[in-house]
Simulated assay, not measured.
Amino acid sequence: MSEFSFAMLPGIEQEELLWLQELTKSYSAENKQRFLALYQSRRKDPQMILICCLIGLIGPAGIQRFVLNQIGMGILYLVTLGFCLVGTIVDAINHRKLAWEFNKKEALTSAALLGLA
């Protein structure tokens, strides 16, 4: 498996790429391939999070939180109209950080599910 396999993930940034390479450096080629398949299915693209935030500005607020499996925050955003749109705007600005935190957690979960961690 090529080291460039992670680089082909949509919207991946250098920090995430380096972190994934460090996480999987001791994995065999087969385990890296299994990890990549599982991680790719669970990973969220930062642009998708941004699009959901922008939809929340004109439609139902909190979609981005539901996408990130933060159901409680999603309901809170929905009821308060995205904290009067301020929370939605802050999420739109910080969409990369939200996606990175979610993806990091999912990478560790994926490794644990495969018994690699």
Rank of each mutant, 00 (worst) to 15 (best):
W19R: 13
F35E: 05
L98Q: 02
L78Y: 04
A92Q: 03
G11W: 09
L116I: 09
Q64A: 11
I49G: 01
S28A: 09
E13V: 07
R43W: 03
L68W: 10
L116D: 03
F4A: 11
I51T: 11
A112R: 13
L113M: 14
T109R: 14
I49D: 01
F83A: 14
K25W: 06
W100C: 00
P10A: 11
G59Y: 10
K105Q: 13
I93H: 07
L78Q: 02
L98W: 10
E30R: 13
V90F: 12
N103H: 05
I12F: 08
R43C: 04
F66Y: 15
L81C: 14
S41G: 05
T109A: 15
S5Y: 10
M1C: 01
G74C: 08
Q70E: 15
A92V: 04
G87V: 07
A99G: 02
F102L: 01
W100Y: 15
Q14F: 11
C84I: 15
G87F: 09
A107C: 09
D91Q: 07
L17I: 01
F4D: 13
A107Q: 06
L20N: 05
R34T: 01
V90T: 09
E106L: 03
L9P: 06
I75Q: 08
I71F: 15
G74A: 05
A37M: 08
A111M: 03
S41M: 11
G74E: 08
L78C: 14
F102S: 02
I71R: 12
V90Y: 11
L17K: 08
F4I: 06
L108E: 14
Q70D: 15
G56K: 06
I75E: 06
T109W: 14
E30T: 13
G82D: 01
L85W: 12
C52G: 07
Q14M: 12
S26K: 13
L38I: 10
C84E: 00
F83H: 02
F4H: 12
A29M: 05
Q47G: 10
V79E: 02
G56M: 09
I55G: 05
A107N: 06
L113I: 05
Q70G: 04
E22V: 01
A99S: 12
G87E: 03
K25N: 10
W19T: 03
E30F: 10
M1V: 05
V86M: 06
V86D: 01
N31H: 13
R42E: 14
M8V: 11
R42V: 00
D45K: 12
G82V: 02
E101R: 13
L57Q: 04
M8F: 11
P60D: 00
L114D: 04
L54W: 09
Q47F: 13
M1D: 01
I93N: 02
N69P: 00
